[in-house]
């Protein structure tokens, strides 16, 4: 019994961080706003069902909110609950805000004192956190971006400028200008460069009220572009991931990248 438990635990531990993907997501209360200083409130969670918080809150420690003028702004009323994290954002500027949880770190496994160990953290802490006599050290760089967009007034693009790190979505169609029955075009970039052959999952929210996930897969073309036709209005979850060996950390041999966005499609 005990041995079985140990084996199971080990199997769990060795599973890649984002292997059996529970879906991670941010869900804004609305994406198109107007008024003197409208507020949005955002749920952040990890779950199988979209967009229901029934599993785990998404940590919002690494929240990065870019205001329309390109500056970073702070979320208000941050709270981590049992199943979801929540924060509010007053939209003091007109234009589009890019709201993201970005985790940019490393995952390491190694042996020390005859035991297999795992560690997650920041690249700069590797030297202090991992014993110098560790053997079989394997370091994976891990960049995850989970984001959504909200607009006060007319959509703007300053806040959508790529950071050049990890997977990002470059708008051809503005992410807050999506309507049912229309086709949107986006470009996916990895480290700022168009990424071809990326498989992108697209799932509409409300999965609790239907029998299937109804997931569609689109693949980026040679220019990294995808087209998505929105059949009906609602919140959509799009996600993709990839791995390569283009690491920015000397100890890391491989790199795992993932990207998730929540997009609202409005009725005509």
């Amino acid at each position: 019994m005990n041995r079985y438990l140990v084996v199971t635990l080990l199997a769990c531990l060795l599973t890649p961080v984002t292997g059996f993907a529970h879906k991670v997501w941010l869900r804004p209360s609305q994406t198109v706003l107007s008024g003197a200083e409208p507020w949005v409130t955002v749920d952040a969670a990890v779950s199988n069902d979209l967009f229901y918080f029934n599993h785990f809150p998404l940590s919002i420690e690494n929240l990065q909110i870019v205001a329309p003028n390109g500056s970073l702004v702070e979320a208000q009323n941050q709270h981590k609950g049992k199943y979801r994290s929540v924060f509010d954002l007053p939209l003091q500027q007109r234009g589009t805000y890019r709201i993201a949880v970005v985790s940019d770190g490393v995952f390491a496994s190694y042996e020390a004192d005859g035991e297999r160990r795992r560690w997650r953290g920041k690249a700069e802490d590797i030297a202090t956190e991992i014993p110098s006599d560790a053997t079989n050290l394997q370091v994976t760089e891990n960049i995850m971006r989970v984001e959504t967009f909200v607009t006060n007034g007319g959509p703007s693009t300053e806040s959508l400028a790529p950071t050049g790190r990890g997977i990002e979505l470059k708008p051809v169609t503005h992410p807050n200008d999506l309507y049912a029955g229309e086709t949107a075009e986006f470009q996916l970039i990895v480290n700022g460069k168009p990424a071809a052959d990326m498989k992108v999952a697209v799932i509409q929210g409300g999965t609790r009220y239907r029998n299937t996930q109804d997931e569609t897969e689109v693949v980026t073309d040679a220019d990294g572009k995808i087209s998505i036709t929105w059949n009906s209005p609602g919140m959509y979850w799009i996600s993709t991931s990839t791995s390569d060996s283009d690491t920015s950390i000397p100890q890391a041999t491989s790199r795992r990248l993932s990207y998730t966005a929540t997009l609202e499609v409005l009725p005509q």
């Binding site: 198109v32 706003l33 107007s34 008024g35 003197a36 607009t151 007034g153 007319g154 200008d177 309507y179």
Partner: peptide, 18 residues
């Protein structure tokens, strides 16, 4: 009352938001 102007969805998209 400008908070609710986007409820005029078509107008908001074609003109109001700018």
């Amino acid at each position: 009352g400008t908070k609710w102007l986007p409820d005029l969805r078509q107008w908001w998209r074609r003109s109001g938001r700018s």
